[in-house]
Structure formats: C-alpha cells, structure tokens
Design a protein around this nucleic acid. Structure first.
Lengths: 193, 193
DNA sequence: GTCTATATCTCGATAGAC
DNA sequence: GTCTATCGAGATATAGAC
C-alpha cells in the first residue's frame, strides 16, 4: 500500500470533521491540526473551503459506490442486500446518536446555507435511492420500485434524526425490527411468470 | 393588540433566521438587520448568542404547546387530531423543501456543535411525542402508544429530510398518503370493554 | 511541498455618549 | 432604550522564504 498523500489525508480528516462538527463550523485550522500541517500549507492543496467540500463529497460518492458494490456481490438475494442497508443503522448506531446520518445532515446543512454544492450532496443520496430501486425491482416491485426505495431511505433518515435527538438506542433497534418486518411483508413476485 | 416589544421582535426574527440559515451561520448582524436596530443595541436585550437561542427555543415550545392545544380542541377524535399533525407536512411543504423541519434540523445542528441547549431543543420534540402518545392511547394502543408515537414522529422527520434533499413535492404527498393509510389501518380498541 | 508571517474580514461582545 | 465606536479573537486567504 502506497503512503497516503497529504491531499488524501486532508480529504479524509475533513470528511470526518464535516460529519462530526458540520461543514460551516469546521475551520481550516481544525483540519490542519487534525492532519498535522500548517494552515499555510493548506492552500497548496486546496484553494478554497468549497474545494475541500467538493473533494469530500467526491470521496463519499466513491466510498458509497464501493459499499453498494460490496453488498451487491455479498448478498445472495435482493432481500439480503436490502438488509445490509438496513443494518447500517445498527452498525453505526453510536455515531448516528452523536452526529446523525452523514449524508442527510450534510444535505440539510447545505440547504440552509443555500450552498452551491447542495445538488452534489444529494447525488450521494441518489446512489442509495437507485441501488435500492434496483433491489426492489428484483423483488418484482416493478413500477412501485422507486417509491418503495424512497420510502425505505426516508425511514432510515427519520430514525437517524430521532436517534440523534433522543439518544435512544432502543428506539433504533425497535425501528430496525419494524423495517425488517415491513421488508418481509413485501411480496416477492420475481418468481412469477 | 399591544405594540410588539423589541425583545420579542428580536426573538421572532432570530427564530426565522435560525430556521432558514441555521443557528451557527446566523450572526448578530443578520438579526439586527432583520429587526432594524444596531448591533450595539442588541446587548441591552441579550447578553450572549446562547441567550437568544434559549429564548428562541422557549418561543418554539410555547407555540408548539398552543398548536397542540388547538388540535386537541378542534379535533373530534384522536384520529382527526393525529391527521392535523400529519397535514403539517403538506401545509408547510414549501418551507420544508427549502429548510427541513425546524425542530429536527435544530436538534441535528446542536448535536454537531455539542451545544449545551441540545437537550432543550429535544424538549420540543418531546412535546410532540407526548401529545401523539396521548392520542395513540386514546385509540386504545395502551403500552404500544409511545412506540407508535415515536414511529410517526420519526416518519415525518424522514419525509422532511428527504423533501429537503430532493425538493420533491410529489414525494411528500405520496408519503403523507402512506401515513394516512397506516393510521387508518391501526385498530381502534377504545370502544372495547 | 512545507513553513512562517501577515493581510483582511467578520465574528461575538463591550464601553460610553445621548 | 438606542446609538456609534471599538476591542480581541478567530476566520479565510495570500506572500514569500526555505
């Protein structure tokens, strides 16, 4: 494995800080301190804060694609693959209770800032939507596939917001059980003629 | 109606700006400009920015209580009252697509800022939770009442986040129809012996 | 590619005249 | 109760030595 470039290290640390403290509240000094370089050195790699945001969003896009590809290969059925998505809420529960969903909270913040990158952040959410739509279609949902995908994505976003506000792990587990029950109740029409 | 005091006017304008731009991104200068007073005059009314936040949260608590009381009086059944809650998503759809839910986004932002007022913001959400729990109990949900209330609150939060990200009014209407269907499917046990 | 030093701006907050 | 003037801190961003 090659040594990580300063450029990539900045993006990695900025990604974490934007998640944990928000984009606006994270300063160059915060990122520089996390990376271990001086503030001045920063501008050799990124000219503006918005450039870093673009790089962070691009990184999240890449990693999301890789994660979805992994679930696609590992899952032996659409239902199993959708469960991989759902179980993110359990796997990341501690971080979610502290900072919410990385994508949902970024979209909400950029909306309030009326930031130009708002559309690019939504693209990450669209990756999930399209992947889930594909799984729903494989379940035979046909023209209902996208609505079901959006509903599931929305459900997970609601759980994340509530978990952050109430810091309630039992609520997360309860809702995840509810989602699993809902998924199981969806009829599988893919074997029909 | 008495003339509105400068104090109350500051809180009203700050409330709107915190919603539309976020707490952190809203400066004293922004609020002062909206109210039409100088920055210096500000500190006669509020000593710190956190004091304004506390006043804004208190205002939202009051107004939420008043709204819930109104629904309680106007609604002729628990089901009707719950519909009043659900239809907020339709009535406020334009603002929600621009800025999300005022309460949910505030809780998320304060969580990332690790702000001391985080718990007070959650109290607003708790008002909705407890009121909805009461309605569910009136429907005969008994020990499931709070879980149903949290589920509905979570559902609405998810719709708000998604609506903000995708700017999709059809999605809101679709989900509201789904919530109405879910509500109608809940058995009413309140008439049972 | 990394550093120090600095410019400029805006922030929250204060002092004091009226 | 409202204003102007100003402080110190910290923000983004730049210049230039090494």
């Amino acid at each position: 494995m090659p040594a990580q470039s300063t450029h990539d290290l900045i993006v990695e640390k900025a990604d974490a800080l934007f998640y944990e403290s928000g984009f606006d509240a994270t300063s160059f000094a915060d990122i520089a301190a996390a990376v271990g370089i001086s503030r001045g050195n920063f501008y050799h790699h990124f000219k503006t804060k918005d450039d870093i945001l673009d790089a962070v969003i691009a990184r999240r896009m890449e990693r999301t694609r890789a994660m979805l590809d992994g679930w696609q290969v590992e899952g032996e059925s659409p239902r199993e693959r959708i469960l991989s998505f759902i179980h993110m809420l359990i796997a990341n529960r501690t971080q979610i209770m502290d900072f919410g969903c990385p994508v949902g909270t970024l979209c909400s913040e950029l909306a309030k800032l009326d930031h130009a990158a708002q559309g690019r952040a939504t693209e990450i959410l669209r990756l999930f939507r399209d992947w889930l739509t594909e799984q729903m279609r494989a379940l035979g949902a046909a023209d209902q596939a996208e609505a079901l995908a959006l509903h599931l994505l929305s459900w997970s976003q609601g759980v994340a917001v509530m978990a952050t506000a109430f810091k309630d792990e039992a609520f997360i587990r309860n809702e995840v059980a509810g989602i699993e029950h809902w998924l199981a109740s969806l009829p599988d029409l893919s074997q029909s003629p």
